[in-house]
Amino acid sequence: MRDLRLPDPRSCIAATPAVRDLPIAVQGLRFESGGKTLLDVPELTIDAAGPTMILGPNGAGKSVLVRLLHGLLEPAAGQITLAGRRPDRAARIRQAMVFQRPVLLRRSVAGNLHYVLRIRGVPRAERRSRVRDLLAHGDLAGKGHQPARSLSGGEEQRLALLRALAASPEILFLDEPTSSLDPAATQRIEALILGAARAGTKVIMVTHDLGQARRLGQEILFLNAGRVEEQTPAARFFPRPASAAARAFVDGQLLV
């Protein structure tokens, strides 16, 4: 178990540690539902240490892709490898995911964090201090005893994110975590994500928001109609998208 992915000055000074489950390699991946092919990715490698942002119009297959990579969906064909190995249970639990709508357990704020630490086998003695650190880190310090479901929308998503980070995942998947939040709440979530990325967690995030992709992304994965149209460093993507679809998307013509 690695340290908490907090932007603790000490860990930021240290060199970003290599993520052990990279690269993520995809071969002949296909997902179908109701007789329709929703995703078809012949080949894809995600190797960048910084955040990978998945962009694309509605129905492009973004959510399906992250769910396949995280192992929540079974592909119709193809395979995924992490650092050359088929993902086993141990690799899966080195990952975490934050969903568009946070699924908080019917427990206290602290209870949600304790829960994850417990199922990850963190010793009881250690849990208390880690929960305290996490709450402080997420600006929820005074709310540990409050029922998780009494939090505001922004706080709820912050707790979901803290819970995902609690066990220091190698890879963190996020599926439009800020789509229903106001700008202030969004900003705090983004700060947490950036902090985790700096501390060495590989971030793979679906977003609708071009500004957010620009702020967070090191690499852009552009999907359209179930296919990966483009995989480009963010610095190159935004000034000059290579594909016509991406250009239309960036120009605001493909916003759905």
Binding site: G71, L72, R92, I93, A96, M97, F99, V103, V116, I119
Partner: peptide, 11 residues
Amino acid sequence: EYSEQLRSFGL
């Protein structure tokens, strides 16, 4: 409501 999240936890 819970199944995706719990599976993501590795359960």
